[in-house]
Amino acid sequence: MIGKKRQPDYKTLTDLELVDLSKDPKFNKEAFGELYERYVTKIYNYVYYRTGNHHDAEDLAARVFFRAMGHIDSYTDRGVPFQAWLYRIAHNLVANWHRDRGRRKIIPLDEFVATRLQSESPDKHAEAKEERTLLLEAIRRLPEERQQLLALKFVENLSNAEIGAIMDRTEGAIKSLYHRTLIALRDELERGSQERREQTRQRKTQG
């Protein structure tokens, strides 16, 4: 019997069930709304750490959801969970953003550092802020896939298997990439540290 469809309890549904309902004209808005609630903060964080500022993070996060809503009919779970599909959209938009604007060296994230360190003394606060700035600068000099891996691992707390689904690699390949990323980051920090020592030495010589 085809009667009036009952509104499901969206919060209890899986992503895949919500995706199916999003394709149904009767339910699509509410179902997509639940998916939006589940992922808006995650996607925002991912984009924020890849762009380094709130303005572009808002703009790109919005584009991710507009694109996802526009293409939801074409999504089918062929081993790629909805979350991974959404992150892939975000990754492509961020990659285009970097390519179009050539803006890789924005130094971000001051306000959350301030929030997190408000209980520390001013000296410690400044030191920790400097340490974070140097680290994030070094990360921005890494290849894109390594930046992506670090953001997914440390901001989103995703497992290697989940990251593998997003980056279309095996869990083993992600482990290996993570190892190489840490080595590259360690070297990058060391190189930055050497450059700063050299600059200080030159300034002293000139002075």
Binding site: F112, A128, L135, L150, A151, V155, L182
Partner: peptide, 16 residues
């Protein structure tokens, strides 16, 4: 040391 530094530096932010 590096992993610990990464863990401290990447903090979840809230969109407005």
């Amino acid at each position: 040391a590096l992993i610990s530094r990464l863990h401290r530096s990447y903090v979840r932010v809230q969109p407005s």
